[in-house]
């Protein structure tokens, strides 16, 4: 009995690893293929059967990429700047609104917060062409304003995130501040925000990452190539050199690099952010 139990346990363990390796291959395989492709010569990418590893490793693809598309650096810069501004704006505006919803006793509060929750359910792409009209009227087409300003005016998702966290901060601390003569904003800036560092980090990483990943917005609103973000720039690149597989792979690699680095250093916060909204939503 003991032997067969052990054997079945070993078998199930082996099966687990086989499945795990299969899942690992699914998730990392395409990324590895990208790495392999970008280090090949152009000719080697037209070979069948394809070679798993480059015959000779070369960085020519990067040279071609940056000669063909000298704007690459600028796109990276644009993406970083936009994403940082989005993250900053998201934290400031959403935490303010969330504080309002978490700490005030107001007749309108519940109704308004319900609207916040409803807008979480609004499909973004239904709004994207109508919003385009708004931006044309504002003269914001081909500027970064449509990408950044909305972030400074609160996002339902982040308001929800902050509110959930603020609710866990004991109100006794507020009362102590009021007794010392502080007002609402003192409580927000001196008590609540300093205690909310984890959620601030999570929200800013999230906002940064989602702004970095955004394609549809920049694709519709940005028209001249020096205003592009990396995502739209990459799409432009596909249209320009659809046959240069190594250069395309190199471009993809560059677009992943910054986020990949953030992920490996800030994995914990990303995980927390998703879990917080997912499990309580």
């Amino acid at each position: 009995m003991n032997v067969s139990y052990k054997r079945s346990k070993a078998a199930s363990k082996a099966l687990s690893y086989i499945l795990l390796i299969g899942v690992l291959a699914l998730f990392t395989g395409p990324l590895l293929w990208m790495l392999s492709t970008m280090l090949k010569t152009k000719a080697e990418t037209y070979k069948y059967p394809p070679s798993l590893f480059p015959e000779t490793v070369t960085f020519e693809a990067f040279e071609r990429l940056f000669t063909l598309q000298p704007l690459m650096w600028q796109w990276i810069g644009n993406s970083v700047l936009i994403s940082v501004l989005v993250a900053l704006g998201t934290v400031v505006s959403s935490s303010l609104a969330a504080y309002g919803f978490a700490r005030f006793d107001n007749r309108a509060k519940n109704g308004l917060f319900f609207i916040v929750l409803i807008t979480l359910m609004i499909p973004a792409s239904v709004m994207i062409v109508p919003s385009f009209v708004l931006y044309t009227k504002l003269g914001w087409i081909d500027t970064w304003l449509p990408l950044i300003v909305p972030a400074w005016l609160g996002g339902a998702y982040y308001i929800f995130l902050f509110r959930q966290f603020f609710m866990t901060i004991p109100r006794e601390l507020d009362e102590a501040t009021y007794l010392d003569g502080g007002g609402r904003f003192t409580v927000y800036s001196r008590i609540v925000m300093p205690l909310s560092k984890p959620i601030i980090i999570t929200a800013s990483i999230f906002a940064f990452v989602y702004s970095w990943l955004d394609f549809l917005g920049p694709f519709l609103y940005l028209k001249s190539s020096e205003n592009y973000t990396l995502s739209v720039g990459l799409q432009f690149l596909i249209g320009q050199t659809s046959q240069d597989f190594p250069a395309l792979a190199a471009g993809a690699f560059i677009s992943i690099l910054p986020i990949g680095v953030i992920y490996f250093f800030a994995q914990r916060y990303i995980v927390e952010g998703v879990v917080l909204t997912g499990s309580k939503g």
């Binding site: 395409p30 293929w33 995502s231 986020i259 992920y263 990303i270």
Partner: peptide, 29 residues
């Protein structure tokens, strides 16, 4: 567990580039 989230962080255009390389009917892996 470290790796499953990585593809989610790939910009969609890069995802498409990668998938076109992987699923290329002639020379794809």
């Amino acid at each position: 567990r470290t790796f499953y989230y990585l593809p989610t962080l790939v910009p969609i255009v890069a995802t498409v580039i990668i998938w076109r390389l992987v699923f290329n009917s002639e020379f794809g892996v």
